[in-house]
Amino acid sequence: MKLHIKNMVCNRCKMVVKAELEKLGFNPISVELGEVCLVDNISVDDKQKIAEKLNHFGFELLEDRKTQIAEQVKTSIINLVHYTKEPLKINLSAYLSEQLKIEYPQLSSVFSEVENQTIEKYFIAQKIEKAKEMLTYDELTLSQIAYQLNYSSVAHLSAQFKKVTGLTPSTYKIEANGKRKTLDEV
């Protein structure tokens, strides 16, 4: 049985969910961002116990198919932006369609309906959050960050950064260092 879980955004989230399921007596086959596979189907009561336990940690079981799809889109984007080592030189619509096995127009429509924003805006927000992280670590130049995040130029990154945050990357680095959002807040 598959459970879809909202707000799983990192490896620590996976460890917490796995540990809590094991404490409740369930041994998951796999625990991935946003998704857990259990050996057997579970009762409504067991599902409620799992939901209550996970809610204490800020997670939420997703029952509705549209909400599940929107969460899978978010998880795929988070994986792409935050956990891929290669530069982001991909076609987002093709990537998402391939990952979720759903045509992009349907993904886009469902995501916009559930999240009240476009996939593109969410993708940009995640890229800007990644840029903030890279600026905070101060290991790469702005030019290298622009390349890693697949911006056509430093000017394009700077303009988008300012539009989202209200600050230029340089100003952010000086004034707002450390004022980042958690991935589930983006």
Rank of each mutant, 00 (worst) to 15 (best):
V186A: 10
F123H: 09
D45G: 11
K132I: 00
K181I: 11
P87T: 10
T141L: 08
I78S: 01
K74V: 02
H4R: 04
I174Y: 14
H4I: 03
Q99V: 06
Y147N: 07
V16P: 02
K132V: 01
T165N: 09
N150E: 11
E98C: 10
E35K: 08
K162E: 12
V73R: 00
T84L: 04
A176F: 15
V39I: 13
E175I: 12
S152Y: 11
L61H: 03
F123P: 03
R180V: 11
N116L: 10
Y95S: 04
N177Q: 12
A131E: 00
L38P: 02
P87I: 10
N79I: 03
F57Y: 15
E185A: 13
F123Y: 15
N41W: 14
D184I: 05
E113P: 08
C37L: 15
L135A: 00
I90N: 08
R65A: 11
C10W: 02
Y104H: 09
I128W: 00
K173Q: 14
I119W: 00
G166L: 09
K173N: 12
S76A: 15
E113G: 09
T165L: 08
K47M: 15
S158M: 04
N11I: 03
K181N: 12
I174K: 15
M15K: 14
G58F: 13
K74L: 05
K6A: 05
V36R: 01
I90F: 04
N91W: 04
Y104L: 06
G25S: 04
M8N: 03
S97F: 04
L135M: 04
L167P: 09
H56P: 07
Q72K: 11
Q68I: 07
S152A: 14
T141S: 15
M1S: 12
S76E: 05
P28F: 04
E129R: 01
A146G: 08
E63H: 03
M1I: 09
S93T: 15
S153I: 12
F26R: 06
A19D: 15
C10D: 10
Q148W: 07
N27R: 15
S112Y: 09
A155D: 13
E35I: 06
G34N: 07
Q144N: 10
K162L: 08
A176P: 12
I90K: 07
S97Y: 05
Y104K: 06
F123M: 04
F123T: 03
K18W: 10
F26G: 09
I77F: 01
D45T: 11
G166K: 08
E129F: 00
N55L: 14
L88G: 13
R65P: 05
I69Y: 00
V186H: 10
K66T: 00
A125V: 06
I102V: 13
I29A: 10
